[in-house]
Nucleic acid binder design. Structure first.
Lengths: 195, 195
DNA sequence: ACTTTTTGGTTGAACGGTTGGTCAAAAATA
DNA sequence: TATTTTTGACCAACCGTTCAACCAAAAAGT
């Protein structure tokens, strides 16, 4: 017989994992991935260095766990009616959701941009990331084609670039960047409505 | 008596400095700032580690030298007629120059984005950087005001975000990003002309 | 009720490797 | 020879990672 039930142990493990991930993300956003040593992460989480390795096999494993946790959240948000067609109102929903996620968790997006420029690290998650992004790009492509744009694939990449640029500027300087006004500008430009 | 004249030594020193800066930038873009050790930079430049410290006081000094060299090049490019007014054709020139610099030296912009998300490092250059960016922002502000936009300062930040996002996407994936087509889209949208 | 056993979470010293940076000596030049 | 460039072994500090030992708490035994 076990001193504690299986469920009790699982709860403890899950809570600690969540704690470590949260504190690590904080530090990554604050000091960058390389400057955030395991010791500092452990100290911030209030645990010993050794215990961190009881929960994550390596620093990289910790990083990918953080990323894929957030990716899963993203997927659940973008899982709309699944009919494969992106209506104009769905495009507006898509854009506004992007801004919503940005406002809710700027720390993650800071980490995301950091990694986009760390070639070695990005390769760890690139493949799985692409699996998620690719369908979005295709649906966006079809949207612009249906709307009568001359170069739909160019506009898809343009929209992606615009959203990236906005995210980048907001994350770097959240207090001074007029996010809500620009959200409306983008929606107006792409969806032709002005709320 | 000196073994070589003062002028000879200065020329040699300047050439070596340039060599080191170039090779360091290559490596930074390839592997990131933290992963580019002094030893690796020296090896890539074909010199010893010790000699690198004859030319740059520290790794940080090398980094800031690279950045400010590029900033100086930028300034010389944007130094137009200096009348303080940004005409529509000057705005188009401004935008197209931005794209030109991007195509000419993507490695530098990769480094620039890398650093934008390394808070500690960015603070070294933040102040001098702002001195250069601020006048551009003000002139852009006045441009949008003169063109009759309702929220000129929002549009200034929007344009900045768009250019950042495009640069980011191009630098990450230069072979597949349709830079020229998107350049024309931006110019058309902001300046109302289609070349 | 109380002691013992069992379990797995928890610790921090220790390890091999790498880093940015130093320096005495050697090579090169005129 | 006199001066400067150039070298690479060397250093302390820190890195990610490991591991033997420890601890808190629940179940089992009495």
């Amino acid at each position: 017989m076990s001193p504690r039930t299986e469920k009790q142990y699982q709860e403890i493990r899950e809570e600690k994992r969540k704690l470590i991930k949260d504190k690590a993300l904080e530090l990554f956003a604050l000091e960058g991935f390389d400057k955030s040593s395991i010791s500092k992460i452990a100290k911030r989480a209030g645990i010993s260095k050794g215990l961190l390795y009881n929960y994550f096999d390596s620093k990289e494993a910790l990083l990918t766990a953080i990323i894929f946790e957030q990716v899963d959240i993203m997927m659940s948000f973008f899982d709309t009616n699944k009919d494969g067609v992106l209506e104009k109102h769905e495009m507006e929903y898509f854009i506004r959701q992007t801004f919503k996620l940005l406002k809710e968790n700027p720390e993650f997006w800071k980490l995301y941009f950091m990694l986009a420029f760390q070639p070695n690290v990005m390769k760890l998650v690139e493949e799985k990331f692409m699996d998620i992004v690719q369908p979005m790009l295709e649906r966006t492509n079809e949207f612009f084609k249906r709307e009568g744009y001359q170069n739909p694939e160019v506009w898809t990449r343009y929209l992606g670039a615009i959203l990236d640029g906005i995210s980048l500027n907001y994350v770097v300087d959240p207090n001074n960047f007029p996010l809500d006004e620009i959200e409306n500008l983008v929606v107006k430009q792409i969806c032709g409505t002005n709320k």
